[in-house]
C-alpha cells in the first residue's frame, strides 16, 4: 500500500477526548461504508489496551466467533429475536412459538414501532450495568431503525406512554443521553451520498435527542498523490503510461474524497479518524491488525 502523503496525526478536538471513556460505543453508518470494519478495528485496539470488550453485532458476528478469548466476547442481538424473547419471558412463553409464528410479534412491532429496538437497547443497558465488560461496541444495524426511534421526539415517548415499557424506555433514554455512559461513532465513506446522509442523521440526533457524535471515521481513503498537480506534475500528466494514468485517476478520486471529508469535518466539528483503503474485497484478521495500528495513534486510549 502506498504511504499516505498526509499522515499527520489529527487528534479529536473535543475536551478530554478519549474514545473509550464511556462504556458503550455505538457504531453508526450507512450500509457498505465500513461500519463492521470499524467495529473490528476498535475491538482490536481496545483488547490490545487490555480492555474486556464485548461486541454486539448481527450477521457480521462471524468475524468474532473464532477470536473470542478472555478479553473479547461477542453477542448477537437481532431485534426480532429479542422481542420474541421478551414476550416469552413475560408470560407468553408457553404460547411463544405458536404466537410468533402466527404473527403476534409482527403485530406488536407494527403497533409499537421501535419496540424491538428499544428492547435491544435495554439489553445493552443491562450489559452496561453488569461488570462483565469494560467496553461494549454495538455494530448497529444498517437500517438504523433505533436511530429513528431516538431522533424523533415522539419516538421513545410514545413507547413510554405504553405503560409497562415505561421504566425500560426511561432507563434507556437516560443511558442514550449521558455522554459519560454512551458515545455514538459515525462511519462514512468519503463520497457524496454517504457523507450527506451521515450529516443528516448526526444533525437529527443532536437536535431531537441532544446526542452529540463522539467520533467520525472516514473509511477507504485513497492516497493523495500531491506530486501530480502544478508545474512539477505536468510531465507526468502528459505521459500516457499505466503508472501515470493510474496516478491521475487516484489523484482525482482522492481529491474528491478530501472535499467530502472536509465537508463532514465541518458539519461534525470533529477531526476525522482516517482509515486507508485496503486493496481487498474482504479484510482478514491481519488486515484489521494493520488498520488498528493506523487508527490507534489517531484516538486516545487510556491504558
Amino acid at each position: 500500500m502506498p504511504s499516505r502523503a498526509d499522515s499527520d496525526q489529527k487528534l479529536q478536538t473535543g475536551k478530554n477526548f478519549e474514545l473509550f471513556a464511556q462504556k458503550v460505543l455505538v457504531i453508526v453508518g450507512k450500509g457498505g461504508t465500513g461500519r463492521t470494519t470499524v467495529a473490528r478495528i476498535l475491538a482490536e485496539v481496545a483488547t490490545k489496551a487490555g480492555k474486556r470488550t464485548t461486541v454486539i453485532a448481527g450477521a457480521s458476528g462471524t468475524f468474532y466467533v473464532n477470536r473470542e478469548d478472555s478479553l473479547l466476547t461477542f453477542a448477537s442481538l437481532e431485534p426480532g429475536d429479542v422481542l420474541i424473547d421478551y414476550l416469552d419471558e413475560h408470560g407468553l412463553g408457553q404460547l411463544g412459538k405458536r404466537l410468533s409464528s402466527s404473527g403476534l410479534a409482527s403485530i406488536i412491532s407494527t403497533a409499537i414501532p421501535g419496540i424491538a429496538d428499544l428492547l435491544v437497547l435495554a439489553k445493552i443497558k443491562q450489559m452496561e450495568r453488569s461488570e462483565t465488560a469494560d467496553l461494549i461496541i454495538f455494530d448497529a444495524p444498517a437500517s438504523g431503525h433505533f436511530l429513528k426511534l431516538i431522533s424523533t421526539p415522539k419516538g421513545l415517548a410514545e413507547i413510554a406512554a405504553a405503560g409497562p415499557l415505561q421504566k425500560q424506555s426511561k432507563e434507556v433514554l437516560e443511558m442514550l443521553t449521558d455522554p459519560a455512559r454512551l458515545g455514538v461513532a459515525f462511519v462514512t465513506a468519503a463520497e457524496d451520498t454517504p457523507v450527506k446522509e451521515s450529516i443528516e442523521t448526526m444533525e437529527k440526533l443532536r437536535q431531537e435527542a441532544g446526542i452529540s457524535p463522539k467520533a467520525l471515521f472516514v473509511n477507504a481513503l485513497l492516497p493523495q498523490m500531491r506530486e501530480i498537480g502544478g508545474v512539477a506534475g505536468s510531465e507526468i500528466r502528459k505521459n500516457s503510461s499505466a503508472i501515470s494514468r493510474a496516478a491521475q485517476y487516484t489523484s482525482q478520486r482522492a481529491s474528491a474524497q478530501r472535499k467530502r471529508e472536509a465537508m463532514a469535518e465541518r458539519a461534525f466539528g470533529l477531526a476525522p479518524i482516517e482509515i486507508p483503503l485496503v486493496p481487498k474485497v474482504e479484510l482478514d484478521d491481519d488486515d484489521i491488525k494493520n488498520l488498528a495500528e493506523i487508527v490507534e495513534p489517531q484516538i486516545q486510549v487510556a491504558r
Binding site: M1, S3, E227, I236, I243, S244, A246, A247
Partner: peptide
C-alpha cells in the same frame, strides 16, 4: 521516466 515515490506502488495497488 522517473516517477515520484508511491506512483509505481499506486499502480500495483490498483
Amino acid at each position: 521516466v522517473l516517477y515520484p515515490a508511491g506512483f509505481r506502488e499506486n499502480l500495483e495497488y490498483l
